[in-house]
């Protein structure tokens, strides 16, 4: 009787012309990473968010998810890449984008959902979600977009988790083909095994210069899942993966980084504002007095980070 290995070789040989290496699993390579522009997060993710994969940035509202995604897009657009922002709740703020270095000309913004946000809380956001998923699908199929952000940050978990897994699987395949980083902002992770990276954000502390000036927030980012970071995991004490065990290609790790974001400073998009912009500190201090014709800046975010994993190790 033929052994399984011999049988496999025979089948592969017979199908070689049509399907090369039909029964052999393709070697898994570490995906190329694109830096997020936040050193602490890049360090946490060993280089940044993966290209050609789905990354989920999760957390409750006001947890720094949007800032992280915008900074990532800022880095990508500054390198000349074209990006897209699919906005389920029409919540994107172009000024914040410009403040984080996003070249707005390089950004395609798809604003889904024409209903009032207040109504969305009462009603069901199926129409907006449907629009957003169809738009994301189209953008992934079109190719050429280096990063696409699917912003479901304000969508309730019970709705976001009703998105079929087949959709995420299709997105993953399309993102891989198009070499596009698909970043999903949500309150909880919903892409499940289709996501290569899952980050969980949390607001840690508030930075205030005085009673009247909010200077920023500190955030904690926790890595829930990261495919392909095997070496680090092994050093960190996770069980060494057997080379023949191809089913365990995914490692779930829990490490975190502390980030702190200052309030947004002057909008730096060259084509946008050519008005008198006071220095940020001056503008903040003069807020109590009558300031006419001074553009208000969103707060700045500082992401000072030290891996919680390292902290625990140090302890």
């Amino acid at each position: 009787m033929l052994s399984a290995a011999t049988l496999r070789k025979e089948i592969e040989h017979a199908l070689e012309r049509r399907f090369p290496a039909a029964l052999s699993p393709s070697p898994r390579t570490r995906p190329e990473m694109a830096p997020t522009g936040i050193a602490e997060v890049d360090e946490l993710l060993d280089g940044g968010l993966p290209i050609g994969a789905i990354s989920e940035v999760t957390g409750p509202e006001c947890s720094g998810r949007t800032s992280l995604a915008l900074k990532f897009l800022g880095c990508r657009t500054q390198e000349g890449h074209v990006c897209a922002w699919v906005d389920v709740e029409d919540a994107f703020d172009p000024e914040s984008g410009a403040a984080n270095g996003v070249c707005l000309k390089q950004l395609l913004w798809v604003r889904c959902g024409e209903e009032r946000r207040g109504q969305m809380k009462e009603g069901k956001p199926w129409r907006q979600l449907d629009q957003a998923l169809r738009a994301t699908d189209l953008l992934l199929q079109a190719g050429g977009f280096s990063a696409i952000v699917l912003d479901m940050g304000g969508t309730a978990v019970k709705y976001a988790q009703r998105i079929p897994l087949a959709t995420w699987f299709r997105f993953r395949q399309a993102a891989q083909r198009a070499q596009c980083s698909l970043v999903v902002i949500g309150q909880r992770a919903c892409a499940q095994s289709s996501a290569d990276v899952v980050l969980e954000c949390k607001r840690a502390h508030t930075n205030a210069d005085c009673e009247t000036v909010l200077s920023g927030f500190g955030y904690e980012v926790r890595r829930e899942r990261a495919r392909g970071l095997r070496d680090e995991e092994q050093e960190d004490g996770f069980p060494r993966r057997s080379e023949s065990d191809s089913s365990r290609t995914e490692a779930t790790v829990h490490s975190s980084a502390l980030l702190s974001l200052p309030k947004p400073g002057p909008v730096s998009d060259a084509e946008s504002i050519q008005t008198k912009v006071l220095p940020f500190a001056l503008a903040q201090r003069s807020s109590a007095c009558e300031v006419n014709a001074v553009r208000r800046k969103p707060p700045v975010s500082t992401w000072s980070a030290r891996s919680a994993w390292d902290r625990e190790k140090g302890a």
């Binding site: 949007t66 994107f92 974001l261 309030k263 947004p264 400073g265």
Partner: peptide, 11 residues
Amino acid sequence: ETSQPRMALRR
């Protein structure tokens, strides 16, 4: 290029 990430608003 902006070196420092800024907090974002969701309108």
